[in-house]
Computed example of a mutant assay.
Amino acid sequence: MSGGLPRRIMKETQRLVTEPVPGIDAKPHDNNARYFKITIDGPKDSPYEGGKYHLELFLPEEYPMAAPKVRFTTKIYHPNIDKLGRICLDVLKDKWSPALQIRTVLLSIQALLSAPNPDDPLANDVAEQWKSNEDQAVETARAWTRLYANGN
Rank of each mutant, 00 (worst) to 15 (best):
A111D: 11
P28C: 03
K93I: 02
T39S: 14
N150M: 06
H54T: 01
L57K: 00
R15V: 03
E139R: 11
P118W: 09
D90R: 00
L55S: 05
K69L: 05
N124S: 14
R103P: 00
N124G: 14
N150C: 08
Y77N: 08
L59N: 02
I109V: 10
L84F: 02
D125M: 15
I76H: 11
V91F: 01
S97F: 03
C88R: 07
R71C: 04
L16C: 12
K131T: 08
Y77W: 15
Q14K: 11
N117K: 02
H29G: 00
Y77K: 13
L59E: 01
I9Y: 06
P22R: 15
T73I: 07
P118G: 13
P118N: 12
T140Y: 06
V21L: 15
K27L: 05
D119A: 10
M1R: 01
D135T: 12
K37A: 04
E128I: 15
M10Q: 14
P79L: 08
W130A: 07
F72E: 00
N124Y: 02
I102D: 06
Y53R: 09
E19D: 15
E134T: 13
F36V: 00
S46K: 08
L57H: 00
T140N: 08
K11E: 07
E134L: 05
G23N: 10
T73R: 05
L147G: 11
C88W: 07
L5D: 04
P79H: 07
R15I: 03
T13K: 03
L16P: 10
L106H: 06
E134P: 13
D135Q: 12
A99Q: 05
P6C: 06
L55M: 05
K69V: 05
I81W: 10
L122M: 10
Y63Q: 01
D94Q: 09
T145I: 06
E61L: 07
P118M: 11
L59F: 03
K131I: 15
P60R: 09
K11T: 01
G50Q: 11
K131Y: 12
R15Q: 09
E139T: 06
Y77L: 08
Q129R: 14
D94G: 01
D94V: 02
L92N: 06
D119F: 09
N150D: 13
G51T: 10
Y148V: 00
L100M: 10
N152Q: 15
A143S: 13
R8L: 06
L122E: 10
R142Y: 04
S97T: 04
L100V: 01
P98V: 03
Q101M: 15
H78I: 04
W96Y: 07
Q136Y: 07
D120S: 07
W144D: 02
A99C: 05
L55G: 06
D120Y: 03
M65L: 12
N117G: 10
Q110S: 14
H54N: 08
P60A: 03
D90A: 03
D90G: 00
H78F: 09
P68K: 03
I76G: 02
T18M: 14
I40M: 14
E128M: 15
L16K: 12
A143T: 09
S97R: 05
A33T: 00
P28V: 03
A99N: 04
I40F: 12
P22H: 15
T74D: 02
G23A: 15
V17E: 13
T140K: 14
R8T: 02
